[in-house]
Computed example of a mutant assay.
Amino acid sequence: MIDIVTGGSGFLGLNFIENYKYDLSNLFVIKHRNILEKYKNNFIDLDTLETTIQNRKEKIRIYHFATLYSLDENYKSEIYESNLNFGKRLFQYIPTELIDSIIYTNTMFSFNELHKNSSYVTSKNMFSKYLKESFDNEIIFEVFLDNTFGHNDNRDKIIPIIFEAVRKGKPNPVKNKEVYLNFTNVLDVIEYLNENKFEKNSFKLVSNKNHNLFSIFESLNEYNLSPIKKINPILNKDSSFTLDSPPTPKDFNNRNFEESIQQSFKDFINLQPAN
């Protein structure tokens, strides 16, 4: 089996590659920028994909992680280029008869009234529609993700922002004490995708709990000052999603959130350059 991965320099793709458990000679990562020296021979340009695989007769599995996340409509053209047009070009280079499966990550914002009409969500769902109109739907596995966190996370998102505030001894960047969000450890997502034993063709990989942003900072701040001390727990409540969202697989495993967030914080600290 040949595995083709897009978005290999992004958060999800980077973690997927670093935890890839099959033969590396069968892994091809579409190059945006190669930031992994160990896997430099696995990165290829989109324009050379066809010639790279033309003499290979194995079936092909595609993990399409490439995405541009932005809710800023000033970047509308870039959003559509990354989330729709790039994916369409990708499949022009891959023989349809050799495709075994397509694993495509979509967004839980698709079920959010506030964001579902944004260019980001619209472009993601237009690509989903393109896949379903172009290929056998039985080989398409659409994975809906909410907020992810974990190893190698330097994105401009709330968890790294909280980490940085704790690291630098700054005030809590979360001002509203009532905000709860759903968070999933990226390694839980990667482990599930690596198994390739999907129950359904459309599913969400989310936590069954939402966690309070304000208390994440407060808890990590205590942990940073004294890791061995018993710290205040992070507040949580049961998650709730709209009825039209797809199910979460029964065998999807969520790590303990407090332990995961502490480990992710330590990883974040280790990634920062020395002062």
Rank of each mutant, 00 (worst) to 15 (best):
L36H: 04
K59R: 13
T107G: 01
V186L: 04
S9Q: 07
P160K: 00
S119N: 14
S82G: 11
L271P: 01
Y93K: 15
G169M: 06
I140L: 14
I269T: 01
D100G: 05
N224L: 04
P160D: 05
D146L: 08
K229A: 10
F217M: 06
Q92R: 12
H211M: 14
K132Y: 12
S239D: 10
Y104F: 15
Q272M: 00
E58A: 07
D267Q: 11
Q262F: 10
F163V: 04
F135M: 08
L225W: 03
L98C: 14
D188E: 14
S9T: 06
N117V: 06
H64K: 12
E50W: 02
E97P: 06
N34F: 02
S245I: 03
E37W: 05
N147W: 00
L14A: 09
L114K: 15
N125K: 08
N212Q: 01
N221C: 07
D156G: 14
E259V: 08
F91L: 15
D238L: 11
I269H: 00
F16D: 05
K197W: 08
F257K: 00
L235F: 13
I79H: 03
S207H: 05
N55A: 10
S118Q: 02
T107W: 02
L220Y: 02
F217I: 03
L46K: 09
I4C: 02
K38R: 14
F111R: 05
E199M: 11
N15V: 00
F252D: 02
V189C: 03
Y104A: 06
E113W: 08
